Amino acid sequence: MRLQSLLALAATSALLLPLGAHAGKLPGGYLEACVANAQQVNKAMTTDQATKHCDCAGKAIEKNFSDDEIADLDSKDGIDARTMQRAETLVKRVCPPETQKK
């Protein structure tokens, strides 16, 4: 998978996740929305691969971000760039997409 696709997938995952410094909680419907977006970004990704990636990303975000940070990532009125970068870096490091592991 190209780096651009990986970054888009990480950004998509991060945008849909609520983040908190002391273990936040993801919004309802996160997994379904993440899987759908992951497959839009990477057409080669199966539903099973997208589900595993999104589940991993969700757990990592919940563990490392606060509720306020997670809410910021899910915001419709702008996202803090540093919070987004932290989320992208974390998801990329902890949860590489299955299609990349060949």
Rank of each mutant, 00 (worst) to 15 (best):
E69I: 02
I79Y: 12
K101E: 08
I70S: 13
L17R: 08
C34E: 01
K76R: 15
S75L: 00
A87T: 03
P27I: 06
T47M: 03
L15C: 13
Y30H: 11
T46K: 07
A36F: 00
G28W: 01
A50S: 06
K76D: 14
V35D: 01
A33G: 05
A23M: 12
T89E: 14
A8P: 00
S66M: 05
M45N: 08
N42F: 00
A10W: 05
T12N: 04
A33L: 07
A10V: 06
K43Y: 03
P27F: 06
N42H: 01
V94H: 01
G29D: 14
A21R: 14
V35Y: 00
E88A: 10
F65S: 07
A33M: 08
H22V: 13
M45Y: 07
E98P: 05
A21Q: 11
L90N: 04
D48P: 00
M45K: 06
C95Q: 02
K59R: 11
A36Q: 10
G78T: 10
A14D: 04
G29R: 14
K25Q: 08
K25E: 03
A50T: 01
A71N: 09
K52N: 11
A38D: 09
C56N: 04
Q39L: 00
R86Y: 00
R86K: 14
K101M: 11
A60C: 02
D72W: 05
G24A: 04
I70Q: 08
F65T: 08
G58Y: 02
L17G: 15
T83I: 15
L16F: 09
M84K: 15
C95I: 02
L3Q: 15
N37S: 12
G28E: 13
G78Y: 11
C56L: 06
D80F: 05
G28L: 08
V91I: 15
M1H: 07
P97W: 01
Q40Y: 09
R82H: 09
L90K: 07
E32D: 14
A21Y: 10
T12G: 15
T99P: 01
C95K: 02
D48C: 00
A50M: 02
F65P: 08
K59Q: 06
Y30Q: 01
T46P: 00
A23Q: 15
L17I: 08
A23W: 11
A8V: 03
K92Y: 10
N64T: 10
V94Q: 10
G78M: 11
E32A: 15
L3G: 06
P96Q: 07
D74M: 12
V41A: 10
C34D: 02
A38T: 10
H22I: 12
D48V: 10
G58L: 05
S13V: 01
K76F: 10
G29C: 14
E88M: 15
N42C: 02
E62D: 12
N64D: 10
P96C: 07
Q85L: 15
G58P: 08
D68T: 13
A38C: 13
